[in-house]
Design a protein around this nucleic acid. Structure first.
Lengths: 224, 224
DNA sequence: CGCGCGCGTTGATCGCGATCAAGCAGCACG
DNA sequence: CGTGCTGCTTGATCGCGATCAACGCGCGCG
């Protein structure tokens, strides 16, 4: 499920473990920057991300962008509504995808086990989006960035030398558009966290958690 | 389909038209201010709002509140995630509700038609939330209020003397918590729209659209 | 009728994050 | 090796919406 908070970190990877007979469609690849689908497109497939990262975007006429969710390995993307996609989906890196025919989801026909999984994924996505709402509507810039790092850590964080490390596979602009901020503000908050020894930056795209408790307190607003 | 934008205004009222045998549960009522369920509660029922309005809320430890959605007549509320509710649900007025057993939704057992309706409702909710994201992340205060009025009009607006009218069944504080603003800002924006003759206020809880086109332009940011 | 209370409105000020701008680091290219 | 480009960082300033405060209005109640 989508990058939003820790309790969403249910492992969906077993989706891919369905026998290929039920999948019936070969894995596809997408280069960084390419679009998997766009808002308004008719939905014929839904996809499970096998490797890489995608973003689900909404655009306003004047160019303002909001990233609804990042799709990480295990996530399902492409939920239809009235047969149409309601976001753009863009690859942020080289992405491998397992497609499923939308007809396999329809209630009349289709595989009941796959359908149940699909339902479960949709309900998890709703819960994940609810956390994201709190972030966008009520949290400060620092709280948003801290929440984001913690959510990403819960999904893809690694242990190394007893410290948590997390890769940021997306640009600062992508993070900003996800959090409802600007790239400048994201950069400033990360610098501030670095200066106060809460995190360290190991290159642009890797964060080391030096004081995870402080980060967690910041994320939930308990720091006052 | 929660109050979010016009293209969500699919009529869900036919949910209630299922023969009572499939419902099997009697309609319930809830007084204004009472809670239907709270975050963390085990999910045994989902509910369709028959009359009145409910809000789905998230709270932060320090009291900050975000309203995820308003549940208007026809809407389904109480989507489970891992068997738990992930929001509070509070009645904003006297509410009538049609409960459904969650077991009727499970894939193994349960009514397939009801299950398909439930799936459709969940997918619509996802799409509606995506619009709300753009609102919270990227729109100005005036754009948020205008978008809200237009979305509410699409759901519950009335024609009267050739003018659209819409009731606001919730308080200014509820609107503010839905839009990620403060009550003062909501009040100021409404006053501004009134002074510029875009809307008129017929009492505290009713808005008349004087210049719907201007309101629509404001909502989408086309006014520049 | 007087009073208190909750909710909404309006005004004054503050501060966070956006905006505008400059500089820097990494990297592909000839 | 130099050059240009792109993405990230940092600084200076601005403005929107939050905050703090006062007031008005409707309404229930003694």
């Amino acid at each position: 499920m989508y990058v939003t908070n820790a309790n969403q970190a249910v492992d969906m990877a077993d989706f891919a473990q369905f026998p290929t007979e039920t999948c019936a469609l070969p894995e596809t690849r997408l280069a960084a920057g390419a679009h998997l689908f766009r808002e308004g497109d008719a939905v014929t497939r839904i996809y499970q991300v096998v490797a890489g990262v995608v973003s689900l975007n909404r655009l306003l006429e004047d160019g303002r962008r909001q990233i609804i969710a990042f799709g990480l390995p295990g996530d399902l993307v492409g939920f239809p509504c009235d047969g149409r996609h309601h976001t753009d989906c863009e690859a942020l890196s080289l992405v491998r995808l397992q497609p499923f025919r939308i007809t396999q989801i329809d209630c009349a026909t289709g595989d009941p086990v796959l359908r149940a999984r699909f339902m479960e994924a949709a309900l998890h996505e709703i819960a994940a989006m609810q956390d994201h709402f709190m972030m966008l509507g009520r949290k400060s810039a620092a709280e948003r960035v801290a929440s984001f790092l913690i959510a990403l850590d819960a999904r893809t964080g690694q242990d190394r030398d007893g410290q948590r490390r997390v890769d940021l596979p997306m640009s600062r602009a992508d993070i900003a558009d996800f959090l409802g901020l600007t790239t400048e503000t994201v950069s400033r908050v990360l610098s501030q966290l670095r200066k106060s020894r809460v995190i360290a930056l190991d290159g642009i795209h890797r964060v080391v958690f030096l004081r995870p408790a402080a980060l967690r307190a910041l994320a939930t607003g308990d720091c006052d």
